[in-house]
Design a protein around this nucleic acid. Sequence first.
DNA 1: TTTGCAATAT
DNA 2: TATATTGCAA
Length: 279
Amino acid sequence: MKEDDSNWFSKWEDELPSQEDLMPLSQTLITPDLAIAFDIRTPNSHTPTPLNNHLHLPPISTPSSGEFDSSELGASGDEPARTLKRPRLVWTPQLHKRFVDAVAHLGIKNAVPKTIMQLMSVDGLTRENVASHLQKYRLYLKRMQGLSPGAGSGGDPATDHLFASSPVPAHFLHQGRPNSDHFLPYVPVAALQHPQQMAAVAGHLQPRYGQIGHFGSPRNGQFEHPLLSRQNQQVVHRVGAPVHNSVDDLESANGRKVLTLDGGEGKCRYIGSSMMTNN
DNA sequence: TTTGCAATAT
DNA sequence: TATATTGCAA
């Protein structure tokens, strides 16, 4: 149908979740003192709730003015970013969910640490983080298939709680061909550089703010995420949002499914395309 | 070069 | 305890 554009869109836009509503897997990996030392402004300086969907890495840019005197941080003038040990990753349920999604979408066969990591597109997440988690998760799955559904707790590792927080896709348990229905469509977005293109791929509906802003260059071919959409989803990019390559599945917002897609130079306004396929 | 895995470390 | 690291074989 031809909808009167300006109307449905304004409405749609108004209903977009506020930044406070959007909030999954962020963790700050920069310690407060480091942040100060490197003059890094924390994204939520005056916002009570963080909203970025990425882990913050040690500073790769902007040591601003050398103010740090960490004699214990390998201060020998070497690259802090490479030398600094990251804080341990905390696998929040949201992060784990993203992990599970990634594994599900890749299929068991291709779900190896590197690929999973790429798919998750969480800044700061390392291959070893994923490898370690994957190792445990596999043990969990193994344990699961041995047990009858109603059986008592063979409950062992405490990580079971985390793992139990996300439903295990059926095809993880038995072996054999994954049902393609369980997979979100794979959308090779690697080459996409512009919102219009993204929108086109994402949902074949017209992008609203097509020309506003750009995504800059896709970094390392990583502008990519198959997690684009099933039905009834929207792709959103927020104005002035911090730039990073991530895709988020934010179901918390008003019970609606929303994908946030950030990447590039961050000058975009909302670009949205309805992902409701044909309705 | 990456993976998977068990053991071990923190 | 939860996650990281290590060592080694594939």
